[in-house]
Design a protein around this nucleic acid. Sequence first.
DNA 1: ATCATAGTTCGATGATAGCCGAATGATCGG
DNA 2: CCGATCATTCGGCTATCATCGAACTATGAT
Lengths: 238, 238
Amino acid sequence: MPMSTTPNIAEMAALIADPSRSAMLLALLGGQTLLASELALQARITPQTASTHLAKLVEGRLLTVQSRGRHRYFRLSSAEVAHVLESLITIAPPVKVRSLRQSDQTKALHCARTCYDHIAGEVGVAVAETMVQRQWLVLGEKEFTVTAAGRVGLLPLGIDVAGLTLGRRALAKPCLDWSERRYHVAGVLGASLAELFFSRGWIVRLPATRAIRVTNLGTAGFAQYFDLPSEKLNRLPS
Amino acid sequence: MPMSTTPNIAEMAALIADPSRSAMLLALLGGQTLLASELALQARITPQTASTHLAKLVEGRLLTVQSRGRHRYFRLSSAEVAHVLESLITIAPPVKVRSLRQSDQTKALHCARTCYDHIAGEVGVAVAETMVQRQWLVLGEKEFTVTAAGRVGLLPLGIDVAGLTLGRRALAKPCLDWSERRYHVAGVLGASLAELFFSRGWIVRLPATRAIRVTNLGTAGFAQYFDLPSEKLNRLPS
DNA sequence: ATCATAGTTCGATGATAGCCGAATGATCGG
DNA sequence: CCGATCATTCGGCTATCATCGAACTATGAT
């Protein structure tokens, strides 16, 4: 007697369904690679339990490990995994604010945060929309198409589109934002934009979160290169 | 002591994580509204257990019920829920083929199927790509933008884009296809396209599946209006 | 060598939750 | 009113699994 033909969604969902595991996954949603101990801390569990959880997540191909010395670095195994998590956030009931500090954190998350390895939140969406408005990007089929104007416009920022190495990864994919409900730029271009912003010191990571803060340098930079009004960027705690 | 600031992804995932519940959800992914008894049959469980599961799914806002007489009709509560399920399929391990009949079924699913209320699979992707190639759609920021040419081109098909009622729902969103790994059209436009194809008799639902069959009428229609080669449509069991 | 740190494995415990049988409601047809 | 159908509720059984203490391995520092 044949089993049902349904794909084993349940298995993957079960991996996310545990509170400790989902906490670790969300901690990794920023695209960072974190240590087992850091993840244990994030999930508020002992290293032993974290170890078993991480083993399961790797076994289930949600995470990939990289052993270096006695350390083990974990990260999400693909952008698709990140996408699943983001879509789950979309349907999850809104976050209960328990404390002022927390409220600050969530506000920061909404404003600017890293989604896997690119920039999401208000800033990410605003940057993307500026690029579309300038006809640098056109929402093609499976991805953003970078126009000739886009290639030229990105050069002063130090991004050579033609030189971006594409693995099997798309150049510029649209990625739905759960806080803004609009798209921002993912893919290789999104990643190199994020890298650029970090290396120029426009944005910095807030400790132990996916949230990022826009620096004074960044306020000027985003205004100059992307026409972003400074009010949008200054709502964050310094 | 404040709990973690993470949204309760785990709760939603736990609802999907049970094999019986995920079977029911996948059965509803076609957009149909099904009876509790039908869902129990799909999940191969007794009506009693199905009832408790369905109660939880409604409680968790994944499903909505509509009582009519002694019957209770269930359906997915939103397109977002469908989106979560599809994205989970994307990362779930591939389906094991257990029998020939099953292989046929999966082939049909790959070729053409309904994803919530729009058309996915080869046909859905092909239609979307034709529209993009004709510049009817442009992959804008959060959604496909329908161009002037698109509005004109869709008129002969009986779709008045300006007249489409938008709730909070997007007009035309790109939706990643797990079988093709390319995008098809979701959103209000996607829904009305599907409705059109059904009402014109171009496609019909195969019983008890999300798979659809392209009729002879449809072969002609898709060729005439969307330049789809007939070979693409004829791979299905009649 | 010695100690500390990072991580895993094992075993016991405890709680959760899916499952079905049986009984109860509720609705429709005659 | 009565039997049939669709569905829910309850109770008890069982299995699964997250959790942590304790012991163990491996790497790095002194």
